[in-house]
């Protein structure tokens, strides 16, 4: 256990304590064996196999688009959680709350801006990821089902962005959601009744704001997270990412 600890007795004492060794079961991963173990034994790193194909780590193969999308989802979760502390989904308070976040909350404007720009960026990267996957023919067997999961994730990303779009309760939000939900009623199987259900009323109002809020902060994030788990799991089960064309 004393690789590179030198003679510092404090460091040595910490690293040889039972607590440290229960947390880090092996020394810093510096050999092939310990590096493999580090990936294999960590629940988060275990998302990855121990070894990956050489082309899979080339930036110009994936452009990291799927990874960026997932990272943006994490950023959005954190910044969204922060914003929830200062936001009440009521038509008489929502707009003032947004103004207060911008004006009087420390870093409030930064967090709101990050949340908004990350959301737009995520829609973009998910689209680009789909195009990249299509280009490489990565939907071919055995990856058909994972493509379907990916298209559903695209849909959930759009739903997350759309439900969040209403929450500032300003003119942009109100009319964009009015137009957007009206368009949805033209789709087959969707009708005035489904618009009534989605909006929680005949027109965009308090019912809509509350519904969209709940859908935005818990329903769609949860569903999207579940589908992401399946998505990542299937990548590994289908033999890692696809090969070059």
């Amino acid at each position: 256990m004393s690789n590179g600890n030198g003679g510092n007795p404090v460091v040595r004492w910490v690293k040889e304590s039972a607590a440290w060794r229960s947390l880090f079961r092996q020394p810093y991963p510096s050999t092939s064996r310990t590096r493999a173990l580090a990936v294999m034994n960590n629940v988060f790193l275990h998302l990855h196999p121990v070894r990956v194909k050489r082309h899979a780590v080339r930036y110009t193969y994936t452009f990291c688009l799927g990874g960026i999308s997932f990272f943006l989802f994490l950023v959005l979760t954190v910044t969204g959680l922060y914003l929830m502390f200062f936001y009440v989904p009521s038509i008489s308070r929502a707009y003032q709350d947004i103004q207060a976040i911008e004006a009087s909350v420390a870093f409030g404007s930064l967090v709101r801006n990050m949340h908004r720009w990350a959301a737009h960026l995520m829609v973009l990267t998910v689209f680009l990821h789909m195009i990249r996957v299509f280009y490489h023919g990565a939907y071919k067997p055995p990856r058909e089902f994972n493509w379907v999961v990916g298209v559903l994730l695209l849909f959930f990303t759009l739903a997350l962005s759309f439900t969040g779009y209403l929450l500032p309760w300003d003119q942009i939000a109100f009319w964009a959601i009015t137009v957007g939900t009206q368009m949805a009623t033209y789709a087959p199987l969707l009708s005035n009744e489904s618009a009534f259900f989605m909006l929680g009323g005949i027109e965009v109002g308090q019912g809509t704001l509350l519904r969209f809020y709940v859908a935005h902060v818990i329903f769609f994030p949860l569903i999207a997270a579940i589908f992401m788990i399946v998505h990542f799991w299937r990548i590994r089960k289908d033999g890692g990412i696809s090969g070059p064309v």
């Binding site: 009534f196 259900f197 909006l199 929680g200 009323g201 005949i202 027109e203 109002g205 019912g207």
Partner: peptide
Amino acid sequence: TLAFLWPNLTEGLG
């Protein structure tokens, strides 16, 4: 779930 979440309007439009 659908029945539970069905909007219940008592005033205004609806």
